[in-house]
Structures are given as structure tokens and as C-alpha cells.
């Protein structure tokens, strides 16, 4: 039974207010291993704000975030990542002046065991680690067909590939839960289809949980197993894609836009 498993991600009454503005309130979600859950809602509904609370960028004013039963409240962003939550950003945030390969390598930092001594004396352990990581990074890049662009400066990649690189970088953190903030935004239909294939490939290969924000309703309906809809920071519906598509509240929220 799904109910008895520990969800990868669970939030309890999560909420945040900015000054007087209640951006998100009473947000509850459970995401299980291997699941792909969609988080949708009109502009300014609070979707990105939820992601920011799930990664420690914003401190929630109420409620808690649990990863595999462990409460993460009050931790710093890098500790959220260490616990196993990785994300991408709505407006791409790459390490622009670094190469494609270095972007992925940088995300390995927290798992690298060598220290200053090994760095200064270039011990065999240093070389071994670097070599292994490079192979691992190229392997991740190959999922997104970026391996032959490894030496390109990230800022020089076309838009669609930048989005893919951001996902590859998130995968490098060895996460249990992947948060994707509008990964298909600004992509043309071919790029979007390609991206969907990638997302499916990732899910099958790593067996992780994915929470996806997306504006494109048809895309969400196609690939998500469950969908949660928020409007003005309040959950107005959750359930299977076909239920959501028929839900009058959801239709009203989207039409009212």
C-alpha cells in the first residue's frame, strides 16, 4: 500500500508570508519514489515559492519539510542538497563562465573526499578522483547529448541545451528528489519532446522522485502521474490528470487568468 511507505518528500502545513502577503499557505504534498508529480497553477500562484522553501532558499514561516521522514527545517540550502533534494531554476542559473563539463563537476564538490594536502601535492588519490568524476560527468552529459560540447563555455550553449545542462548538473548531486521549475519554458515543440524523453530516461535510470512545475497543461497531463494545483498559494485540487482536467475549480482558476 502506498500509504505505508515513507514518502521521499512530505510537507506538512507548509506556508510563507512576505510582509503581509500570504504567498503560500497550508501546502501539503507527498511524493513517493519513482513518481512524477506535477505542480501547476496560474502565474504568481506560488509554485516557485514552494520550490524555494523545499530547498532552503526561503525559510517557511510555518509548517515543515520532510525528506524520507527527516525534518529539514532550518537547514541551509547546501544541506538540503546534501540530504537529497536537487533543483533547476525557472530562469536558468548556470555557472556561465565555466565550461559545460565544469558545471557538472562543480555539483560533485560535496562528495569529493580529497582535501588541501591532496590538492597541493597532486597525490594519486587526487588524480583518481578527478578522473572518475570526469567520466561520471561525461556519462551524465551523454544522457542529454551534451558530451561533445563538454569544453564549451556554458553561456555559449543554445537555450534548450542550457536547460538540459541545468538538469544534468542537478543530477550530479546524487539526489532522491528532483525539482524541475518549468523545464520546457521557452522551448520549441521538438525541443520539448526531446526533453520529455530525457526526463523519462532519468526517471527510469535513477529511480528518483520528480516534482515538476509546468505551465504547458498538455505536457503535464501527458507525463505526470499525479497533479497538484495551487492558486493564490492555496491548494485547490489534487489527483490524477484526467480528474484535474475536469475539475471546475481548476478550469475557473486558469480561465480567470
Amino acid at each position: 500500500m502506498a500509504e505505508e511507505r515513507i514518502p521521499v518528500l512530505e510537507t506538512r502545513k507548509l506556508g510563507i508570508t512576505f510582509g503581509g502577503l500570504v504567498a503560500v499557505s497550508d501546502f501539503n504534498i507527498k511524493v513517493f519514489r519513482g513518481e512524477l508529480v506535477g505542480l501547476i497553477g496560474p502565474n504568481g500562484a506560488g509554485k516557485t515559492t514552494v520550490f524555494n522553501m523545499l530547498t532552503g532558499v526561503y525559510k517557511p514561516t510555518e509548517g515543515s519539510v520532510l525528506l524520507e521522514g527527516e525534518v529539514l527545517n532550518g537547514k541551509k540550502t547546501h544541506q538540503f542538497v546534501a540530504a537529497g533534494i536537487a533543483r533547476t531554476f525557472q530562469n536558468i542559473r548556470l555557472f556561465k563562465q565555466m565550461t559545460v563539463l565544469e558545471n557538472v563537476l562543480a555539483a560533485f564538490t560535496k562528495d569529493i573526499k580529497y582535501g588541501m594536502i591532496e590538492t597541493l601535492f597532486r597525490t594519486p588519490k587526487f588524480w583518481k578522483t578527478e578522473k572518475e568524476l570526469k567520466e561520471k560527468a561525461l556519462d551524465l552529459l551523454s544522457i542529454f547529448h551534451l558530451e561533445d560540447k563538454a569544453e564549451y563555455v556554458a553561456a555559449n550553449l543554445p537555450y534548450g541545451q542550457q536547460r538540459k545542462l541545468e538538469i544534468a548538473r542537478a543530477l550530479a548531486t546524487d539526489m532522491k528528489l528532483l525539482l524541475l521549475d518549468e523545464p520546457a519554458a521557452g522551448m520549441n515543440p521538438t525541443e520539448t519532446t526531446e526533453l520529455l524523453e530525457c526526463i523519462n530516461a532519468i526517471r527510469n535510470r535513477f529511480g528518483i522522485a520528480i516534482l515538476l512545475i509546468e505551465h504547458d497543461m498538455s505536457l503535464v497531463m501527458n507525463i505526470c502521474e499525479r497533479i497538484q494545483v495551487i492558486d493564490y498559494g492555496i491548494t485547490i485540487a489534487e489527483g490524477l490528470p484526467e480528474e484535474i482536467a475536469k475539475n471546475p475549480k481548476v478550469i475557473a482558476a486558469y480561465l480567470g487568468q
Binding site: 541551509k76 531554476f89 548556470l94 555557472f95 565555466m98 562543480a106 555539483a107 560533485f108 590538492t119 597541493l120
Partner: peptide
């Protein structure tokens, strides 16, 4: 040696985008 190691990558990542760096697990 410092800049051509995980240290160099980490600090250049911080320079390019501090939020993305911490969201990539860099302390």
C-alpha cells in the same frame, strides 16, 4: 593547484551564481 581542483571549481561556481552554487550542494 588550488584553482585547478574542486576548490577552484567551487569558488568559480560561487562567483558565477551563488544561489545556484548552494543549490548544487556547495557550502
Amino acid at each position: 593547484m588550488f584553482v585547478r581542483s574542486k576548490y577552484g571549481r567551487a569558488i568559480r561556481a560561487i562567483r558565477d551564481d551563488e544561489i545556484a552554487a548552494s543549490a548544487s550542494g556547495i557550502n
